[in-house]
Every structure is written in structure tokens, then in C-alpha cells.
Design a protein around this nucleic acid. Structure first.
Lengths: 336, 336
DNA sequence: TTGTAGGCGTTATCAG
DNA sequence: CTGATAACGCCTACAA
């Protein structure tokens, strides 16, 4: 077990074969006789050989690094996502360079430029702002995988979450818990087919499916896209006099604000109103009350995104592929 | 402006010099005539040349990647720290590979092994658990920079935070705000010279400095190292009947729990009790009330840690160096 | 001050 | 199935 810099030639010599055969064994490229393979593997073990990535990268013309652009790595959700992507990328022998977009369309576009400039082999882009394919089209030819809510018309590799199905399941969960007057908290603009629209549609579909007539008054538009906005929306729900006994929020963050707003008015979750969120961010488990939520399989998402980027780097000509993550309803105190 | 793979030779040809001269210009190594330098720089601009890091790394025997091991990248504080380290490392041409230790001594040790296995050029280790040099000694020779509270007896490169001075300044801030019965919330064990002990010492020093006799009953030991533990400690403070009008908490996380515990008893921050934390984690600004806190200069820490690791990689024989970050008292609602 | 030769470790290619 | 050769792009050492 030598220290440090053992090369393929060393291994080859030890195994009594050529360096090429060692390379072939390591990459299971062409057929190698069982005999030779055995000897090479033994020599690798014995010598403690480690492939030198720089040499491989030089040969292959790649950098061995993929980019991951997220809005804010200081946000628990994206931190967790980054950790998962890093882990999955490592399985494929890639390092991950993390960029922050600041949740700005400009930042998202800049991440792409930056990624190319740094000679990263590809980019996993967690899109939240860019909502038309236009700014991404000039990047054709550079491997990009979209990870997020925006759809972008099927032109790119894309891993998304089960917006309709997840929210429908969440709504049904509330119905199963006995709720009859289920409010929904959405963003303002339901004209475009955004993530928010999709989630709203899931809510309606579930109600109709269960034979409940959707009451338009039960749709509450967020006062502002902030924690405070969610809080004041919670107060409005409490003040509405509509007999709300269940709330579907389009994200856990919004859900927490709503809980706070309800409590401002003395309305308790889950005693008076049951409430469910979406995303299963880490805080949801420790929030008081802990939040029931729609939990897309985050690890699955990360693994799929990495698979996609790796295969696209290998073959840029592949047609665009779209995947939707599996999900589960996580039952916690807020719908108990 | 060619696309893609422009090499040094291309630039050299364009500038009418040898590749070596281009290399020398890029690295400002030896003396290059102004004339040649001009022409090379022009050629670089014109061709859009980019250095190929894989080739350089192969030559230099390095990987161009440094490790950063933190307890939990999903934690906002460490997410922010990671972002800063990544940014600073990029200035030096390094990529960062993020590891998670799970805040386990075992994980911290594993990160070192992993870092070597992945052939990272060095490791910035955010230590929270390892508290003796022993487990780190076998790594002598591998470039490691410690970033965190543990001291480890001056054997390693180390960037730390102003534990005593920061807490003293926090305590003085409360005194300046008119507080006279200032409680301190600490961890249990003040025998070893841990971060918590240092912060407690800063509190006492400030009181004595201002001629206030420390009252031992005003030291509250955390019921448990958790949000809930901090919360119940807050309730104990409210129930103590000691006339507490100020609280120094040894971290922002603890501070938030204490605020909650005080409010459980109808005690308002800052109206009834003023309170200050330590760390300036991102949530502190959005917490209600927003938290006054001791804010070590996080960017400075990141920059210094990167400087240290880069210089140590360059010269492993350097003596160990220790730095303490500058800090500021951030005044927010909780001490208004 | 500038240039030439050679090699870092790996792998594509093609001959054996 | 295996191996010799060359090349990826850069930089150390030495020569001019």
C-alpha cells in the first residue's frame, strides 16, 4: 500500500500488463480477459491506486465540475438540495460548483454565463424567476438541466415536482380529516400556467373529485410574497367569517406565516383549523405545530437532475427529457 | 474571438512569441518585456483565451479543489458561510467541495479522510465537536484550516470569533441601554475552556468593568441544547423573580428560544426585558422582534480561512497561524 | 529576456 | 484481447 502518487503505470507493472489494460479495466471499456482483470484489480487494491482526475480531465477535455445554481444557499431548502446534488454528483465522479442567483432572473441568466466561463461541464439550474425559454435559448449546446417549477415549454431537460397531484392529495387529506370548508392560499396571478396556478388547479380538482363545490370566496390571495404577507393573509382568513376549517397553502413557508396570522386572531392549528403546506422544508418538522405537507422526494430529484446532466454532457444531442418527482403526504400535527 | 478551445500556443502564435512567454505573462513569473507583455495580453483578449485548469493541475500535481466541511449545509448559518468561502476560493482559482459532518466528531474525522481520498488540495474544517488535537494530529502534513470555536491548543491554522470581546461588548450594550439585572444563558459545562466558557467570561468581565457585582443567580444554564431547551430556560428566567431586565444569550438560536419562553410567560422583548444574541445568523434579522446580536465579520472569516489554506498548500512548512475575526454589535429591536 | 525540450497521468487509435 | 504510440495543455528546467 504505497503512499501518494501511484500511477496507472505502477499498477500495470505490478499486474504485469500494459497501462492501457489497467485503463480498460477501470472504465470497463473493451473486453478484458478475466485473468488480466483479476490481476489488475488485485494490483489496484494492493497499491492503493487512485485515478488522477486532472489527467483524465485533460484528456477528455472536461473539467469534472458541474454547476448548481440556486437562489440562496443560505435557505434551508436549497441547502438541503445542494447537499443532495453534491452527494449524487460525487457518485458520478463530479464535483459541484455552487452559484447563487438571488432568485433574480438576471442572476439566473448570469449563472449560465458564469458556468460557461468557469468551464463547468454543465449546469443544474434551479429556476424560480425565468419563465420563458427565450433567455435560455442562446445557451443551446451547453448542457443545462432545469430543476424547479417553471415549465419552459418542454425545450429543456427538466425535473419538476408534482404540483397538481401533490396539492390534490393534500386537499384530499384535509377532506379525509373531516374538513368541509377548505380555503386555499395562492399567489396573485392565475393567468399564466405557473407553479402556483398548477397547485391551485390541484386543489380544485380534488374538491370536485370529492363532490365539493369550490367556493370562490375560499380562495385567498397572498397579501404579499413574504412571511408578513402570509401572516396577514392568515388574519384575513380568521376574520372572514366563512367558517374555514382547513387550509391548503402553496408552500410550507407560506403555511407558517398563515399559522402565525391565525394565531394572532386566537385561531388554533390544528384544533380550530387544519392546515397543510407543500415542500417539506426542514423547518416544517420543528415548527410548532409541526406542519403536514406535500413532500416531493428531494433525493430523487437530485439524483435525477444529476443523471440528466451527466447523460447530456455525454450526448448533447439527446432530446429534452422531463421528469416529475414522486411525492408523499407527510402527516404531522397541523392536520392531526 | 474564437470559440472554445484556444490554447496557449494559439495565443503565442497570435502574439508572435513562444508559449512560455504567454505562461510567464499569465503568472507574472519572470520578467517579461513590456512589449511582449502588451502583445500577449492583446492576443489573449482577442482570442478569448481561457487557461485550462486541468492541464495546470496535472502539471502541478494538484486538484484545484479545496474541501469545506461544515456540520449541516441546510443550516442557514453554514449555508451562508459556505457561500462566502466558495466566493473567496474562486478568487484564488479554487473550487470548493462541500462535506457535511453532521456535527459529529466522527463526521469531522471522516471529512478529513474523505478529503484526502478525493485528492482535495486542502480542507477548511468547521469544527464543533472535536475538542482535542489528538484526532487531527495524524493528519499532519495535510493542509487543514480550522474554522470555528474550538481552540485545539495552537497547533493548527485557525480562524476564530471574538468570544470574550464580543460577549463583553454585548453586555456593555445592555448596560448602555439601561439594564441593571442582566442574566446570562450559558451551556452547562464551564470547566473546560470552550466557546461557551469564553463567552461567559466576556459577560463577567464586562460587568466587573462597569462596576456591577455579578450575581451568580443570574446565570441560567440551558435546560437542553435545543430550541425547546432554550424556550424553557426563557420561562425559568421569567419565573425567577430576580427582576431580570436584560439577557445575554450565547447564540442567536438560543436567544430565539429564550424570547419564545419569555413570551410564554407574558414577558415582552424588548419592553420588559432586552436581549442580545451572538452570531448574527440570517434569521435574526427577520425574527420578531429582530435580534440585536454580536456579528463577527463572516466574510472576513471566510476570506481569512481561504487565505490560510491557500498559503498552507503553497508551503506546508509554515508555522500555525491564529486569527480572530473583527466584530460589530448589531442593534435591532430586541434591545431597542 | 525568450525559447526549446520534455513530461505530468490518462486514454483514443490502431496495429499485433 | 493486448499493447505501443501519441496527444491533451501547461509549466519546470535548461539553453540560447
Amino acid at each position: 500500500m504505497k503512499r501518494g502518487k501511484v500511477t496507472m503505470s505502477d499498477v500495470a507493472q505490478l499486474a504485469g500488463v500494459s497501462p492501457m489494460t489497467v485503463s480498460n479495466v477501470i472504465n470497463n471499456r473493451v473486453k478484458v480477459s478475466d485473468d488480466a482483470r483479476e490481476r489488475v484489480l488485485a494490483a489496484i487494491r494492493e497499491s492503493g491506486y487512485q485515478l488522477n482526475p486532472s489527467a483524465r480531465n485533460l484528456r477528455s477535455g472536461r473539467s469534472g465540475v458541474i454547476g448548481l445554481a440556486v437562489p440562496q444557499i443560505g435557505n434551508a431548502y436549497f441547502g438541503m438540495l445542494a447537499a443532495l446534488v453534491i452527494e449524487e454528483a460525487r457518485r458520478h465522479g463530479y464535483h459541484v460548483a455552487v452559484e447563487q442567483t438571488g432568485a433574480l432572473a438576471k442572476g439566473e441568466a448570469a449563472a449560465i454565463a458564469q458556468s460557461r466561463r468557469l468551464q463547468l461541464d454543465g449546469l443544474i439550474l434551479s429556476v424560480v424567476e425565468i419563465d420563458s425559454p427565450a433567455p435560455l435559448v442562446p445557451t443551446q449546446g451547453y448542457p443545462i438541466v432545469l430543476l424547479g417549477e417553471q415549465d419552459l415549454a418542454g425545450r429543456f431537460d427538466h425535473v419538476t415536482v408534482p404540483n397538481e397531484a401533490g396539492t390534490a392529495a393534500a386537499t384530499e387529506h384535509l377532506i379525509d380529516q373531516g374538513c368541509e370548508r377548505i380555503a386555499v392560499v395562492t399567489g396573485g396571478d392565475l393567468d399564466r400556467l405557473t407553479m402556483i396556478t398548477r397547485r391551485y388547479n390541484g386543489y380544485r380538482a380534488a374538491l370536485e373529485d370529492r363532490g365539493i363545490e369550490p367556493d370562490p370566496r375560499l380562495r385567498f390571495t397572498l397579501d404579499a410574497l413574504s412571511w408578513e404577507g402570509a401572516r396577514s393573509t392568515g388574519r384575513r382568513i380568521a376574520d372572514s367569517g366563512l367558517g374555514v376549517d382547513g387550509v391548503v397553502a402553496f408552500s410550507d413557508t407560506v403555511a407558517m406565516g398563515v399559522v402565525r396570522g391565525l394565531r394572532d386572531r386566537g385561531v388554533s392549528v390544528p384544533d380550530d383549523v387544519r392546515l397543510i403546506g407543500f415542500d417539506n422544508v426542514p423547518e416544517s418538522a420543528v415548527f410548532i405545530p409541526s406542519l403536514s405537507t406535500v413532500s416531493p422526494d428531494h433525493r430523487w430529484k437530485a439524483a435525477k437532475a444529476v443523471d440528466l446532466i451527466v447523460s447530456r454532457i455525454a450526448d448533447p444531442a439527446l432530446p429534452p427529457r422531463q421528469y416529475t418527482a414522486p411525492f408523499a403526504i407527510i402527516r404531522r400535527e397541523s392536520t392531526a
